[in-house]
Design a binder for these strands. Structure first.
Lengths: 110, 110
DNA sequence: ATAAACTACCTTGACAATCTAGGTAGTCTC
DNA sequence: GAGACTACCTAGATTGTCAAGGTAGTTTAT
């Protein structure tokens, strides 16, 4: 198990989850792993953040869930991006880009 | 007065304040303005966030304060970066870079 | 003179996101 | 049958930010 050394950038978790799901349906546990992996072990997602985030996002209608069986033969809840979720991902992506660029610009100020 | 349309990326305020002060001492009100200006009106700092942040940062020993008079002839508390603050700015800068890069990497994932 | 706009500070209360730290239960390997 | 791993969940505390209020002094325009 990778043990990344840093906490998540606040406010980006929802976006990262949506992004992970944009690559295909996945259960909660797997989403956490996929994010760690996609970020090359820099970003970690604690379960205490992950599951509440999933409920929050589902309540918004951006993902749907369905119980199933994992690759390891365990019961698992699979999440899938909705059309609205795909749209939301775009919005958050643009927002993040704008903000991150602004921060970078400030940091580059002589 | 510029009215930027977005909230601050959480966790970056301290860094932005330190950065603003790295360009020279400044009073609280001015720090807020400098950040708005450095970010081309994308980042806004609410006073309800700014002043508590300044106390927090001063408590850490990264800045010191001194009462003085502003350019407009009003009493104002001027903040100055300490040596420790300059070092902290570096640390936060590296951290931010690493995290932001990781997020960008995730978002670019096919 | 006096109102309006701006500078500069401050505080309170609420809210949202995250983490820590616990827990359950099933599977697989040794 | 012990230990590691998968997979879910929750409660409580902490933290950062914001919204919305407030005080007081200065400047500009009327």
């Amino acid at each position: 198990m990778p043990t990344p050394d840093t906490k998540l950038l606040q406010g980006t978790l929802d976006m990262l989850i949506l992004k992970a799901l944009s690559l295909g349906p996945l259960h909660g546990y797997g989403i956490g792993q996929r994010i760690v992996q996609m970020s090359d072990d820099v970003l970690r997602v604690e379960e205490g953040s992950l599951y509440p985030a999933l409920y929050r996002i589902e309540r918004q209608g951006w993902i749907t869930s369905e119980w199933g069986v994992s690759e390891n033969n365990l019961r698992a809840k699979f999440y899938k991006l909705t059309r609205a979720g795909r749209k939301q991902l775009q919005v958050e992506e643009e927002n993040w880009g704008r903000l991150a660029d602004a921060v970078f610009k400030v940091m580059r100020t002589a």
